[in-house]
């Protein structure tokens, strides 16, 4: 198994709503190769975000195993899981989720506080990440002083600042217009192709999914088909 591959074995996740058990993921088996850009599609309630949360160690499966880079997340304690997230995963959310009181640079520096880095190293690493997303001239701006696209790029810079193997994006273009969304998707594509990041992106948008190497379809908590965009004519 490659260093940044993702594997789910018989994963079940049940939510209890209104006194009833809701089986959001139902004995799901899925293997995702490392350094690949995956899009995760499906109707609402199909379990896309739940799957993303399980892979990111934000949530726990009720049954089955979740392995990321060979590490079985199901056996980790809350503290170990938090440490693992800091070391191995970067998150990009639909609503950007930047901390409004911090500047772009400070937002990107935030996950770096968990690494054994000096102040200067943190600053340099944050600046590098921001330059990578073309925001070198917006480092000292607070989120409210940035456009939606810029905010999402800061969020991406924050996700890659610690150089994680896996980037998880939950509807990263959901709040953006088409042009801005395309720019963000190109950026994610570049991170995958140039830096070898494994990217798992939840989306409702077929156009967004078109940027991924593979598109995984979920339906009612079960795996549907997997499309390989690389095999499609016109894209390579």
């Amino acid at each position: 198994m490659s260093q940044n591959s993702i594997e789910l074995r018989g994963v079940t996740r049940i939510y209890r709503r209104g006194g009833q058990d809701l089986r959001v993921l139902d004995e799901l088996d899925l293997t995702m190769a490392g350094s690949t850009f995956y899009a995760l599609m499906g109707p609402s309630g199909s379990g896309k975000t739940t799957l993303l949360n399980l892979v990111g160690g934000l949530d726990r499966a009720d049954a089955g195993e979740v392995l990321v880079g060979g590490e079985d997340l199901t056996g980790l304690s809350d503290t170990e899981l938090a440490r693992w997230r800091a070391d191995h995963v970067g998150f990009v959310f639909q609503g950007f989720n930047l901390l409004p009181v911090l500047t772009a640079r400070e937002n990107v520096e935030l996950p770096l506080l968990l690494l054994p880095l000096g102040r200067r190293q943190r600053r340099e690493q944050a600046e590098r990440a921001l330059e990578m997303v073309d925001l070198g001239d917006r480092m000292d701006h607070k989120p409210r002083e940035l456009s939606g696209g810029q905010e999402q790029r800061v969020a991406i810079a924050r996700a890659i600042a610690t150089d994680p193997e896996v980037i998880l994006a939950d509807e990263p273009t959901g709040d953006l217009d088409r042009d801005t969304a395309d720019a963000v998707l190109l950026l994610l594509q570049r991170l995958n192709r140039e830096l070898g990041k494994t990217i798992l992106m939840v989306t409702h948008d077929p156009q967004a999914a078109g940027y991924a190497d593979r598109v995984i379809h979920l339906d009612k908590g079960k795996l549907g088909r997997i499309d390989d965009n690389r095999a499609t004519a016109g894209r390579s």
Partner: peptide
Amino acid sequence: GVLKALGFPN
């Protein structure tokens, strides 16, 4: 939620 997602302990 963001802090926890980034890996800050509880």
